[in-house]
């Protein structure tokens, strides 16, 4: 028949220098403590870390001789583990750990701004369709729109180049856009990416 040595005796043995007593204590309570930690943190790696940290505290306290025999060993280490779990969550609140998922994807931070091939083809198609629509505009409106959009000229430059006032250039641009929208809507053209 196997007799189980009481935790308090194992602690006394350990304090007296018997290192095997610690091994017995750890193995005896391993599953219970690990399960408790895991039930709170739900991560095996973190469970392992907290378990280790809890026992390091136990070892240091016992070696320093500051262990209070009033309570029992298991409730004591459980309380240590519980405090470490709270510390873990506090630390994570200050410094949240992001994991890959739909809400947050690390790759999205690393990507470049270039369009993928499919989006680029669609964009080229829209650009070429728009060019054809611009050709349908009256000459004066088309001229202003091309200068403004494709040549990136200011309205001041447009007015100097076309010999009309800035207000006229602005008005022609406005009508150009209105007419473009009209053509798009009348012909049910889709210009979306």
């Amino acid at each position: 028949m196997k007799v189980q040595i009481d935790d308090s005796i194992l602690i006394q043995k350990y304090i007296s220098g018997d290192e095997r007593a610690l091994e017995t204590l750890i193995e005896r309570h391993n599953r219970r403590i690990s399960s408790f930690i895991y039930s709170k943190v739900n991560d095996r790696g973190i469970t392992e870390d907290i378990f280790q940290e809890a026992f390091i505290k136990v070892i240091r306290t016992l070696k320093r001789g500051t262990y209070n025999e009033e309570g029992k060993f298991l409730p004591w280490i459980m309380r240590i583990a519980h405090n470490l779990i709270i510390d873990h969550f506090r630390k994570n609140n200050r410094m949240p750990m992001y994991q890959g998922g739909d809400a947050y994807n690390m790759l999205s931070l690393m990507g470049d701004d270039k369009l993928d091939i499919e989006s680029q083809i669609i964009k080229d198609q829209i650009d070429s369709d728009l060019r054809l629509l611009v050709e349908e505009l009256p000459e004066d409106q088309r001229e202003v729109l091309i200068m403004r959009i494709y040549k990136d000229m200011s309205f001041k430059e447009i007015s100097e180049n076309t010999g009309v006032s800035i207000n006229t250039a602005l008005g022609r641009m406005r009508y150009a856009l209105i007419n473009l929208r009209k053509i798009v809507s009348e012909n049910n053209i889709a210009l979306t990416n």
């Binding site: 290192e19 610690l22 091994e23 750890i26 193995e27 391993n30 599953r31 403590i33 690990s34 399960s35 930690i37 895991y38 039930s39 095996r44 469970t47 392992e48 378990f51 280790q52 026992f55 390091i56 070892i59 240091r60 070696k63 320093r64 001789g65």
Partner: peptide
């Protein structure tokens, strides 16, 4: 019930035992 199956790895226990042996107060 995964919770009941969790326990510290032998490496962790080994580390703790070595830490204990090396610690001197």
């Amino acid at each position: 019930n995964k919770v009941n199956l969790v326990q510290a790895k032998p490496e962790t226990i080994e580390f703790l035992l070595n830490y204990s042996k090396s610690l001197n107060v």
